[in-house]
C-alpha cells in the first residue's frame, strides 16, 4: 500500500503528518484542558511546518534578494503562514482565558470532572 521511496522523498510532509497525529492524540485522550490546548498548538505547528515545507526548493536560500546566482525558496507560503501564526497565538490566549474562568467557577481544569459537576447540578435542580 505504501510506496516507501516516495514517502522518504516526501519525509518532511510525512513528519508534519506525524506531528499532527501526535497533537491529535493529545487532544483526543487527555481530559485536562491545558493539555488539550498544548495538543492544539502541536497540531497548528504541524500545519505550519507542512505549509512552509511546500515552498522549499532544493539548495534554495532564504528569500533575501539582491544576490546573484542563488536559488530562492518560494516566499509566498512563509508570508501567508504569518497570518496563521497570529491567529494561533490569539486563539491560545483566548482558550487560556476561558480555562482560567472555568477554573475559578468549577475549581478544576479537567473536562470530565467539569461534565460530572454540571450533571450533578442539573440533577439537583
Amino acid at each position: 500500500m505504501f510506496d516507501f521511496v516516495k514517502l522518504w522523498d516526501n519525509s518532511f510532509y510525512a513528519m508534519a503528518i506525524i506531528l499532527f497525529l501526535i497533537g491529535f492524540w493529545v487532544m483526543l485522550t487527555h481530559s485536562n484542558l491545558i493539555k488539550k490546548v498544548i495538543g492544539m498548538n502541536i497540531m497548528e505547528t504541524a500545519i505550519f511546518l507542512f505549509f512552509v515545507a511546500i515552498g522549499y526548493v532544493n539548495q534554495g536560500s532564504a528569500p533575501i534578494l539582491g544576490r546573484e546566482g542563488v536559488t530562492f525558496v518560494n516566499p509566498l507560503p512563509s508570508a501567508l503562514i504569518l497570518t496563521g501564526i497570529v491567529v494561533s497565538v490569539s486563539i491560545t490566549a483566548f482558550a487560556l482565558a476561558l480555562i482560567i474562568k472555568l477554573h475559578s467557577y468549577y475549581g478544576t481544569v479537567d473536562a470530565d470532572e467539569i461534565a460530572q459537576l454540571r450533571r450533578i447540578s442539573d440533577d439537583s435542580e
Binding site: 500500500m1 505504501f2 510506496d3 516516495k6 514517502l7 522523498d9 516526501n10 519525509s11 518532511f12 510532509y13 510525512a14 503528518i17 506525524i18 499532527f20 497525529l21 491529535f24 492524540w25 483526543l28 515545507a53 511546500i54 515552498g55 522549499y56 526548493v57 532544493n58 534554495g60 536559488t71 518560494n74 509566498l76 507560503p77
Partner: peptide
Amino acid sequence: VLVVIGVMLLLVVQEMPTFGDINNPVH
C-alpha cells in the same frame, strides 16, 4: 481513529509532488 486518519494522510502525502523539486506546481 488516529491510525485511520494517519494512513489516509500518509497515502495523500505519497501522491504529492516531490519535496523540493523546482518544477512543483507551487513555484
